[in-house]
Design a binder for these strands. Structure first.
Lengths: 140, 140
DNA sequence: TAATAAGTAACCGCAGAGATTACATCTGTC
DNA sequence: GACAGATGTAATCTCTGCGGTTACTTATTA
């Protein structure tokens, strides 16, 4: 959803876009978009203004925003769930495995992050525009 | 949790272990463990028998089981959530972005998988045993 | 035959994410 | 200054998934 929103902002090339408009593209509620934009603002990816006739726009050029940044801005948790209950510390495996799993998962997450870094928002836009030939319908 | 269970099985080196015992180490309910074991059975990672005095054991040596297999056995879904609502197809971005995101996420997931493949269950056991020196308490 | 342990169904509770409504706050324009 | 347009934000609802629990069935071994 975050990538979708940023892609629309990139598509509009610096014009300010309202949360209502973005919600229309993602097909959701403006409030959901605003909550998402708050995260993106904290990550300095977008610039949002209140007031009549304003809205949000990208804070950097699409070529200088990669998807790893977007992921970090939106998903604070790692994709691996940490169980609520602590393992049984009386068991030698249970006592030590969490630390080891943390190491392994951090490494796996880093590998994924490095892959996401290879793709910029500009790449996404380029691909969307290229495959966009299939639908000449233009509403924006 | 799956790695934890498999680690205990590897720790017991071929002995059959009951779901009740595994539940004790993970600190959860035997039924949860059994449900997990069903997935691991389908992936041919463990071998489970019913009846008195039986239980589960590894189907392969720990050195020949890598964590990517474990992840695939347990998590059928990718770590990237797919929104329930379809994007607005009237928007040029909304219409084409899903296909593009699928490509990107598949690549990122593959990068993570390749990293997980580097670690075998034997590696986990070795690390656990090494750091296990901190707690001489032995209940198993 | 009895004890043991997995298979499995049914249900509860909790947490997270999106959806919705309502209201406060800020800002540009008239 | 008033008003309209837009964000910020809280409260609540629903839905889904996961773990937890109980209870019962089935299979195997002693």
């Amino acid at each position: 959803m975050a990538v979708h929103v940023l892609a629309v902002l990139a598509y509009k090339e610096g014009d300010r876009v309202t949360s209502a408009f973005l919600a229309g593209s993602v097909n959701t509620n403006p409030v959901i978009i605003r909550r998402l934009l708050l995260s993106l603002q904290q990550a300095r990816l977008v610039d949002t203004c209140k007031g009549a006739g304003s809205g949000s726009r990208l804070n950097r050029s699409p070529g200088r925003i990669n998807l790893a940044e977007v992921y970090r801005a939106v998903e604070e948790a790692e994709p691996f769930g940490t169980p609520a209950r602590k393992p049984n510390t009386a068991c030698p495996v249970g006592h030590c495995i969490r630390k080891e799993l943390d190491r392994i998962f951090a490494s796996a997450w880093k590998a994924m992050e490095q892959d996401l870094e290879k793709t910029s928002l500009a790449d996404v836009i380029t691909a969307v525009k290229a495959s966009g030939a299939c639908t000449p319908k233009k509403v924006v």
